[in-house]
């Protein structure tokens, strides 16, 4: 996908929280460009600063240093009133949905329109349209307490889209949902991105969410950007320690297999009918031990990775690498 126009630019962004006897650097020297129309992921462990980062984008948190440029507007230069206008072109959804509990689904969606000064009649009309988009037309009169988690998030998405924003910020939007609901919400976000052309920024601590919908990703660790790039690239060849940790997720214990040489094999979309490991074992006439495997089948293609333990002798080892090399299977030695 080709991205041209920058939608959000963060330049030298930093945020320090001052209190009486401590000051905490939540973010430092963040440089990041998010382009129009892409789904951009920001991932990090909890406490890494990603929630602060997303709040800096819409100035819910005022950065201590650096600039946020949104749609060519430098947010540090606009006054308070103008800032409210700017925020109307950025929708935001949250982990805890944050719906108004005393309003129905329909009234919740009308809320941002009321704030923007849209007439009651037009607001209602738009709200019904949006309920249609998120597939909840029959729940217009339901209060949040009567909706499931997934339905609440759908209402929240509809609400965030009401003012026709250019950007949708998602702060851990699926973290409170079960895996099935998570997938349906992610599908909805993908659909919105595609059909309405809205730039989506996804904050999460789950690599699976990034894999599922993002085009590019930034990895935040200890207040800094550790790595940034296309999702496939980062997934297949993570460079930083934190990126490796997130990509391996369940495989953190790999490093505890001491002494042995290991190799990570990456499945980058070759057909899942091809028995890669079995062929390798037959060809090289040496057994390998699979230490970790995490692959999934997407449209008949295999994606994921495996960590295998290499045989002791150098000849077998060389043979395996030669096999992987000649068959163009991405791999790397793990030490």
């Amino acid at each position: 996908m080709a991205y041209q126009e920058p939608m959000i630019e963060l330049i030298g962004l930093g945020k320090t929280f001052e209190s009486k006897n401590s000051h905490v650097k939540a973010l430092e020297d963040i440089n990041l460009t998010i382009y129009e129309g892409e789904i951009f992921g920001i991932i990090g462990l909890s406490g890494a600063g990603k929630s602060t980062l997303v709040r800096c984008i819409n100035y819910l948190e005022r950065p201590t240093t650096g600039k946020v440029i949104f749609d060519k507007i430098d947010l540090s230069e606009v006054d308070d009133y103008e800032l409210l206008r700017v925020r109307q072109s950025m929708g935001m959804i949250f982990q805890q949905f944050n719906l108004l509990m005393q309003r129905t689904a329909l009234q919740n969606i009308c809320f941002p329109l009321e704030i923007a000064g849209v007439s009651k009649k037009d607001a209602k009309k738009r709200a019904y349209e949006l309920l249609e988009v998120v597939g909840l037309s029959d729940k217009a009169g339901a209060y949040p307490a009567q909706l499931s988690g997934g339905q609440k998030q759908r209402v929240a998405i509809a609400r965030a889209l009401a003012t026709k924003p250019k950007v949708l910020l998602c702060d851990e939007a699926t973290s409170a949902l079960d895996p099935t609901t998570t997938r349906s919400i992610l599908d909805l976000l993908k659909e919105i991105n595609k059909n309405l052309g809205i730039t989506v920024v996804v904050i999460t601590h789950e690599m699976s969410v990034i894999e599922e919908i993002c085009h590019r990703v930034a990895i935040i660790d200890a207040s800094h950007i550790a790595e940034i790039g296309d999702v496939e690239e980062v997934f297949m060849r993570p460079k930083s320690k934190i990126a490796k940790q997130l990509v391996f997720s369940g495989a953190n214990h790999i490093e505890s297999f001491v002494g042995e040489d290991k190799c990570r094999i990456i499945f980058d979309g070759r057909t899942s009918f091809e028995p890669v490991i079995a062929n390798m074992v037959l060809e090289c006439r040496t057994p390998v031990n699979i230490l970790f495997a995490d692959t999934k089948d997407i449209d008949g293609k295999a994606f994921g990775q495996m960590v295998i333990q290499l045989p002791e002798d150098d000849i077998s080892k060389k043979r395996i690498f030669a096999y992987l090399e000649t068959n163009n299977i991405p791999h790397e030695e793990v030490i």
Binding site: Q88, M90, M92, F94, N98, P112
Partner: peptide
Amino acid sequence: EAAQSMGA
């Protein structure tokens, strides 16, 4: 916070 994010 949600209301603030909508520019209220």
